[in-house]
Design a protein around this nucleic acid. Structure first.
Length: 208
DNA sequence: GTCCTGATGTGCT
DNA sequence: GCACATCAGGACA
């Protein structure tokens, strides 16, 4: 499977965070470390937007930990949680406006060990299996070590939205997007059959 | 399939 | 101290 996976332009990351969340689905995350190279198709992502979102790390303001989110879009915000997992986020919106998209799950394309059929079906798992850690915090998504690309002739993906997963605040926001029916999505839960309207479309309407 | 638990480091209150 | 944007493994159905 040969694909043209050149990095997405800087402008891709500058728009509305919910739009970027939706547009990231179906794109390819590429991680290169020495001779090792992993490629995965993004199938699940969540938006964390601004100082008024209680689930967003920037809720408590600009700190050393959150400074990357306040910086340039198109960069990686990587942090450590639960004592053992890293999380990979894509910074969006203009500098000074803290927002990011958590990459929650990938469908493996190449480079992954074959023992696990779903090696990237969760934000902690994908970082572990692609050797993504804090050394990549703040790196550009146009770097040689980590980038996001688009394949030619990619078929449009079937997007669904749901509340975000694994948080206790801000659960009313329908800011998780995933590719419906994809087996690499992190959770098949009871909400799978619920149909939530797209918050992205709603925002477009309001701006009209 | 579901529910529950333990492992574990860091940044905040 | 404690709350976490988690996961694997076990008990049970």
């Amino acid at each position: 499977m040969e694909k043209d996976l050149g990095p997405l332009p800087y402008s891709f990351y500058c728009s509305n965070t919910l739009a970027v969340t939706a547009n990231l689905l179906g794109k390819y995350l590429v991680r290169q470390k020495g001779k090792k190279k992993w490629i995965g198709k993004i199938v699940e992502a969540e938006a964390y937007i601004g100082e008024n979102d209680p689930a967003c790390h920037a809720f408590r303001g600009h700190t050393p930990r959150t400074s990357v989110m306040y910086g340039e879009p198109g960069h990686a915000y990587v942090y450590f949680t639960y004592g053992m997992y890293f999380m990979l986020n894509v910074v969006t919106e203009q500098p000074g406006s803290p927002a990011a998209v958590l990459i929650r799950a990938l469908e493996p394309v190449s480079g992954f060990a074959l023992d696990d059929p779903r090696p990237a079906s969760g934000p902690g798992k994908l970082c572990k299996n692609m050797e993504i850690d804090k050394t990549l915090n703040g790196i550009s998504f146009q770097s040689k070590a980590l980038w996001i690309g688009e394949a030619e002739n990619e078929v449009p993906v079937k997007i669904r939205w749901s509340p975000r997963i694994g948080i206790n605040v801000g659960v009313e926001k329908i800011w998780r997007a995933y590719i419906f029916g994809n087996r690499s999505v992190s959770r098949k839960s009871s909400e799978q059959h619920a149909l939530y309207p797209s918050p992205f479309e709603g925002q477009l309407l309001r701006n009209r």
